[in-house]
C-alpha cells in the first residue's frame, strides 16, 4: 500500500476573528520519530494539529499528503482529543462505530475490536456503557478507536491533560505501543516531563510560530532560542 507520509505543511497560516493565530508553518512530518509539539498554552499547538488533521482549513499556504494516497488521507489518519467524546453506547460499539465509518467490513471489525480493546486493556469493559467509564478509561477507549483504525499517523492533542498520573502512564504506554506498531505519533503537550518521556523530536511553538525543531536530547540540553531556554527552565513566557 502506498503511504500518505510524509506530510508537508507549506507556509501554512491560520487566522480567525482578524487575528493571525498560526504563522507561516513550514514543517515536514516523516515516518518514524515520535514528534512532540511543545509550547505554552496559546502557542497554537492545538490549531496546528487541527490544521494537519483537516478539521480546519488553513487561511494561507497548503497541507500536502504524499502523492497517490493523498485522496484517501482522511481515512489513514486519526486524532485523539484532550477530552474524549464517547458515544452513548458500549465500549465495543464505540470502536465499531469508528470502523463502520471507515468502511471496514463487519467480519473484520470484530477481530479488530477485540485486538484494540486488548491492547488498551479495556477487554473486560467491552460491554460497559462508554459514558460511565472513568476519564482515563475513556481516553484509553479513544486510543482503542485509533488502534482499531490502523492508521498511518495519529494526532494527539494533550491526551493526558485531564488525567491523573496513573491514567497518564497508561495512555503513554499505549501511545508507545502504537509507535512500536508503526504508527507515526504527533502529540502536543505543555508538560516538559511528558515531552522528555515521549518525544523523539521536539517542535517548539510560541505565539503561533515554529521557533525551534530539534531531537529531544539536543532540545533539552542546548535550546537555541531564548524562548525555548526560558521554557525549558520552567519560566513563564508571555502569550
Amino acid at each position: 500500500m502506498s503511504r500518505i507520509l510524509p506530510l508537508r505543511l507549506e507556509r501554512v497560516g491560520y487566522a480567525a476573528g482578524g487575528k493571525t493565530l498560526v504563522h507561516d508553518l513550514d514543517v515536514m512530518f516523516e515516518e518514524g520519530p515520535r514528534t512532540v509539539i511543545l509550547g505554552p498554552n496559546g502557542a497554537g499547538k492545538s490549531l496546528t494539529l487541527r490544521l494537519c488533521h483537516g478539521l480546519i482549513q488553513p487561511t494561507t499556504g497548503r497541507i500536502v499528503w504524499q502523492g497517490a494516497a493523498s485522496a484517501s488521507a482522511q481515512r489513514r489518519q486519526a486524532m485523539v482529543f484532550q477530552r474524549p467524546v464517547m458515544l452513548r453506547r458500549s465500549v465495543a460499539a464505540n470502536v465499531d462505530y469508528a470502523l463502520a465509518l471507515a468502511g471496514v467490513a463487519a467480519a473484520e471489525r470484530r477481530a479488530r475490536i477485540a485486538d484494540a480493546l486488548e491492547q488498551t486493556r479495556l477487554a473486560d469493559l467491552a460491554d460497559r456503557p462508554a459514558r460511565v467509564l472513568s476519564i482515563g478509561e475513556q481516553q484509553r477507549l479513544a486510543l482503542a478507536r485509533v488502534w482499531a483504525l490502523q492508521v498511518e499517523i495519529v494526532f494527539l492533542d494533550e491526551p493526558t491533560a485531564s488525567l491523573d498520573p496513573g491514567a497518564t502512564r497508561a495512555v503513554e504506554a499505549i501511545v508507545n505501543a502504537m509507535d512500536a506498531a508503526g504508527t507515526k505519533i504527533v502529540m502536543t503537550t505543555h508538560d516538559l516531563g511528558q515531552a522528555r518521556r515521549m518525544a523523539d523530536e521536539i517542535l517548539f511553538l510560541h505565539q503561533g510560530r515554529l521557533i525551534e525543531r530539534a531531537p529531544v536530547d539536543e532540545f533539552f540540553a542546548r535550546p537555541r532560542t531564548r524562548e525555548a531556554q526560558a521554557f525549558v527552565r520552567g519560566e513563564l513566557l508571555p502569550i
Binding site: 487541527r50 488533521h53 478539521l55 482522511q74 481515512r75 486519526a78 486524532m79 482529543f81 474524549p84 467524546v85 458515544l87 452513548r88 453506547r89 462505530y97 469508528a98 465509518l101 471507515a102 478507536r145
Partner: peptide, 20 residues
Amino acid sequence: EQLRSLGAGAGRALWTLLWD
C-alpha cells in the same frame, strides 16, 4: 470535531446525534 475526525458526513452525524 470527534465525528468529523472519524469521517462522519453531516448525514451520518445527524443519525448518530439522534441515536445518542
